[in-house]
């Protein structure tokens, strides 16, 4: 891996790559904001924020199409190779993952609106730590891409395992609450689905991390298993 800090001789190529990278970062920022609005709307029973999260999903969808279009144009016009080629492919895949994250935010917001119309239950607060973990994963995934940080990209699987464990624990607790408080079954069911959405956000963030590792090291770490992954992480850490 030899990513270059030197600019392309062809300024338009440099500009197109820069624009593609910036579009991904702008899209990530909107997706992140949608997720934050949805969760804040849930925790504060604020339907207005939920509506914003749902409406802003359109912007994320447009970003996905425009990043794919930009990528296609770069492939057609400049025939990129090596790091540039991996960057273009990764940008398109990351855009797809961000679009899915924003979809999850929309689902959370829709459920939050319904929850807001029901009596408040204390267990709603159990979603907050899951959100913190999923949000940190997303932030790190995007940082790994923005800074071509292979180490950080490799570390996301471990973070996601913790999120998965927390998700399982939360579902168990919510199931117990359903048995205890049968009058609010619908609310608990919605909260289980919200927890599921956040677990999926973590998975998409991991995908973004994997793409970042691909850009930075030309290694495809998808589906290689935890053992190979940790060995690779220690190789890089050396």
């Amino acid at each position: 891996m030899n990513q270059s800090k030197v600019e392309h001789t062809l300024a338009s190529f440099e500009e197109a790559l820069r624009e593609s990278r910036n579009s991904v970062l702008r899209m990530a920022s909107v997706a992140q904001q949608n997720l934050e609005h949805a969760i804040t709307g849930l925790l504060n029973r604020n339907a207005e924020l939920c509506n914003e999260a749902i409406a802003d999903d359109d912007e994320v969808n447009s970003f996905e199409k425009s990043i794919d279009g930009e990528g296609l144009k770069i492939l057609m016009r400049f025939s990129p190779v090596a790091t540039d080629l991996r960057h273009v492919l990764a940008a398109m895949k990351i855009a797809n993952n961000l679009e899915r994250i924003s979809d999850e935010a929309g689902s959370i917001a829709r459920r939050a609106r319904k929850i807001g119309k029901q009596p408040e239950v204390a267990e709603t607060r159990m979603i907050e730590p899951l959100y913190e973990m999923a949000s940190a994963l997303l932030r790190d995934g995007i940082r790994a891409f923005a800074e071509s940080d292979v180490d950080l990209g490799l570390a996301l699987h471990e973070q996601d395992r913790k999120l998965d464990a927390a998700y399982r624990k939360t579902v168990k607790e919510l199931t117990k609450a359903m048995e205890r408080d049968t009058g609010n079954l619908k609310v608990y069911l919605h909260l289980i689905f919200v927890a599921r959405c956040l677990e999926r956000v973590g998975d998409h963030a991991v995908n973004i991390g994997e793409e970042s590792v691909f850009v930075g090291s030309a290694t495809d770490i998808r589906h290689i298993g935890p053992e190979a992954l940790s060995e690779m992480a220690s190789d890089y850490g050396d």
């Binding site: 030899n2 990513q3 030197v6 392309h8 190779v81 090596a82």
Partner: peptide
């Protein structure tokens, strides 16, 4: 060589960053 060159000079040349 064209997907993951081991030398920075190679990457700079094949990706049009020669300079």
């Amino acid at each position: 060589l064209f997907s993951n060159p081991s030398q920075k000079e190679t990457e700079d040349y094949i990706s049009g960053r020669f300079g």
